[in-house]
Every structure is written in C-alpha cells, then in structure tokens.
C-alpha cells in the first residue's frame, strides 16, 4: 500500500466514525433539534471525509469533480432540509429540550 492508500483508509475510517456518532446521536439525543444537529454533522463532515478518501483513489479529475459535486449537493440539501424541519417544528410549537 502506498502513502495515499493509507491516507484514504484513515479518511474513510474517520468518516465512518462521524457517521456512527451521528447515528448514535440521532437515536439517543433528547429532542428533534439536537437530533438534527447530530444528523447534519454526520452528513456534512462524515461524507466530506469519505469523499476526500475516495477522491484520493479516483482515476481521473472528472471523477474527483463528480465526487465533490455529490458532496456539495448533500451539503446544500442537508443544511436546507434541516432548517426547514427545525423551523416547521418551531412553528408547530415543538419546544427545544431544556435540562
């Protein structure tokens, strides 16, 4: 394995850790808003790390571009949808969790 392969593995594993943490947060956090927070962290950073890991293995720059495009779209959709869900819940009177 070359240096870039090791770097890929490290990035993919770190990304997987973010996904795992996000999933645990989604299941364990107390209310909708904190769960959204956990979920978007996994989507944004976890997927970003995975994309970086995969981009190192890509055969051409075109593939790198496509991977980055996927990440950009997920960022856009994730942030937008999280905002819509949270503001919709606030309007319906779902109260944020307080200790």
């Amino acid at each position: 394995m070359s240096a870039s392969d090791y770097l890929s593995v490290a990035l993919l594993i770190t990304g997987a850790v973010f996904f795992l943490a996000g999933t645990v947060g989604l299941l364990r956090f107390p209310d909708l808003y904190t769960r959204l927070h956990a979920l978007t962290k996994a989507d944004n950073v976890g997927l970003g790390l995975m994309i970086a890991g995969l981009a190192l293995q890509a055969e051409s720059w075109a593939v790198v571009g496509k991977l980055l495009l996927i990440w950009g779209l997920v960022l856009l959709a994730g942030a937008g949808v999280a905002h819509l869900i949270a503001s919709g819940a606030l309007k319906q009177g779902v109260r944020p969790w307080k200790k």
Binding site: L76, A77, G80, H83, L84, S87
Partner: peptide, 8 residues
Amino acid sequence: VGPVLTTL
C-alpha cells in the same frame, strides 16, 4: 416561504 427554501 423562507429565504432558505427560496435559495435552495
């Protein structure tokens, strides 16, 4: 419709 959905 909020600005976020419009921009999206």
